[in-house]
């Protein structure tokens, strides 16, 4: 009954949506309003003006830098919220204490352990490449950081948490997790001091290398922050053994 009602409701919802879709400009047309106003300027002058050959990186980190600044704050806040939710009242929780949890670590096969040890340097190099090359090829801070975070998760599952944690010294782990917002704020304040606006980039044509350098610095900050936040969320949610 409930299912039939829901299906009927969804048909009702989808009809106006489909009608709206049929009024949109033709898919893939080069004359649609979305493509004729600001996109041509970004595509034409992005590489000189913003410092990266990859125009998507230009838009994310330079033209719409505020947006991304807010976004890295969002992922940092979500890490803080995950900590708050999972750590609150941990000792007063009798159910989790009595819960019969299989604490014995299953035996990891030597093949898996060997392959992970063999592959991890290459995965790490790929992650660094994606981060550092984000301004001239697809990729960037988030993608590379996520690849590195996935490597940390893999190491945690196969080699144990102690091995994976060696890559993030406990003393500076908090700093690493906040790396993305901190880098953004540092670059923004540097622009404020030198050029008069928060997140302003140097405009002179001779300073093109400075623009590219700043983009790379922000990408590295986002990469480091992303990798540590993803691994921290994984460890906190109980993937540790």
């Amino acid at each position: 009954m409930k299912r039939a009602l829901t299906a009927a409701f969804l048909v009702l919802v989808s009809l106006p949506l489909l009608y709206a879709m049929s009024q949109l400009p033709q898919h893939g047309s080069a004359t649609s309003p979305a493509y004729t106003h600001i996109a041509p300027r970004y595509l034409e002058r992005g590489p000189e003006e913003a410092g990266a050959e990859n125009v998507v990186t230009d838009v994310i980190l330079n033209y719409r830098g505020f947006d991304t600044n807010g976004e890295v704050t969002v992922i940092f806040t979500s890490l803080a919220a995950v900590f708050a939710v999972l750590l609150a009242g941990r000792e007063g929780d009798e159910r989790s204490a009595s819960e019969p949890r299989a604490r014995t670590t299953p035996e990891v096969s030597p093949v898996a352990s060997f392959v992970v040890r063999l592959l991890s340097p290459f995965v790490a190099i790929f992650a660094v490449y994606v981060v550092m090359n984000g301004h001239i090829s697809p990729g960037g801070g988030f993608q590379g950081g996520t690849v590195f975070g996935a490597l940390l998760i893999l190491a945690t599952v196969v080699l144990g948490k102690a091995t994976a944690e060696k890559l993030q010294p406990a003393r500076i782990r908090g700093l690493l997790q906040a790396a993305a917002p901190l880098t953004f704020i540092a670059v923004g304040v540097a622009g404020l001091i030198m050029f008069g606006d928060y997140l302003a980039f140097p405009k002179a044509a001779a300073l093109a290398w400075v623009r590219t350098l700043w983009l790379i610095v922000i990408e590295i900050g986002i990469g480091v922050g992303g990798a540590s936040i993803i691994s921290a969320i994984f460890w906190q949610m109980g993937g540790d053994r």
């Binding site: 080069a30 979305a34 493509y35 600001i38 996109a39 970004y42 595509l43 992005g46 590489p47 050959e53 990859n54 125009v55 998507v56 230009d58 838009v59 994310i60 719409r64 001239i136 090829s137 697809p138």
Partner: peptide, 19 residues
């Protein structure tokens, strides 16, 4: 893909929705 470099040819897809 909107990546300018040697050998890139117009037209390019719109970079703003992607960002």
């Amino acid at each position: 893909a909107p990546i300018m470099g040697a050998g890139a040819r117009a037209p390019f897809t719109n970079p703003i929705p992607q960002a």
